[in-house]
Amino acid sequence: MRFLLTKVGLLALTLWAAITLNFLLPRLMPGSPADAAIAKLAQNGPVSSATRASIEAQLGVPTGSMFDQYLQYLGNVARFDFGVSYTFFPQSVAGLVGAALPWTLVLVGLVTIIAFIAGTLLGVLAAWKRGTWLDTLPTVGGTFASAFPYFWTALLLLFFLGYVAGWFPTSGAYGRGTSPEFSAVFLLDALYHSILPATTILITSLGGWILGMRSTMINTLGDDYVTFAEANGLRPRTVAIRYAARNAILPNLTSFGLALGGVVGGSLLVERVFNYPGVGYLLYTAVVNQDFPLMQGLFLIITISVLMANFIVDILYGILDPRTRR
């Protein structure tokens, strides 16, 4: 219980720090992002005083005390009020982010879990068959593939499998003329569209899991209880999986949380290449159009999502390894 309370407290502190960083960023930057944002918004028509206040709370005003602005900003964040986007006027930032988030969550979430499972298995295999081709191939291949920039893998797959071979759709998350709904036809179509982006993330992130699992597995293989299990005459497969791998997974799980930030960052670039309507593509659109309210809202949501994922992994770690609960 104490473990859980400490973790929740740390999460609250980290969330507060991230929200505050989001508050400080536009205020530390040269020029006045708020003025620029309101000026752009004014091109769409008169700006209501409520909208102006919410944008100023988010991006900063030259007048007024910083503390008052901070309080108002915190209030807005608590109400999910991130202002109005001027690229997609008059839609609210919260609504836009809410529409884009599921696409990224499903894509990145599923692929990360697949990559974790596949990478862990390959890592176990590589460590167990150390020195054979089953070790060399995944290790060297993984090292090389993790050096691929995400967007390059994406561009190559898009070009060769999308344009040249024509096997996969080249843009978007579902076919033109269809709209999101819960039907088998739509879900299959969405799955078909997600194959290339998913493969890209898989190729680039798999190597890290293989290498991480391999090195912790090699360490546990040297432990006494593994030698003991072998001396007891247990089958090699039992020793490898029930004794060594089981204990090697735990340290690998810690890097899961930290690697997630990198995968999310990579998926932003991948979404840009495939015009995939997730958070990354929206962030790109916001940046290109200098849509500061949208940009800030997205940054906050992305950061909070990654923090929450880390929190869940931490809790999971505590459940799996009683020693960390102390």
């Binding site: 930057m29 930290l258 670039l269 962030l283 940046v287 940009m295 997205l298 990654v306 923090l307 880390n310």
Partner: peptide, 15 residues
């Protein structure tokens, strides 16, 4: 370490 680096870079670079 936990704040995703690329989004942070993108935001700062956009300003």
């Amino acid at each position: 370490l936990v704040i995703p680096a690329l989004p942070l870079m993108i935001v700062i670079a956009a300003y």
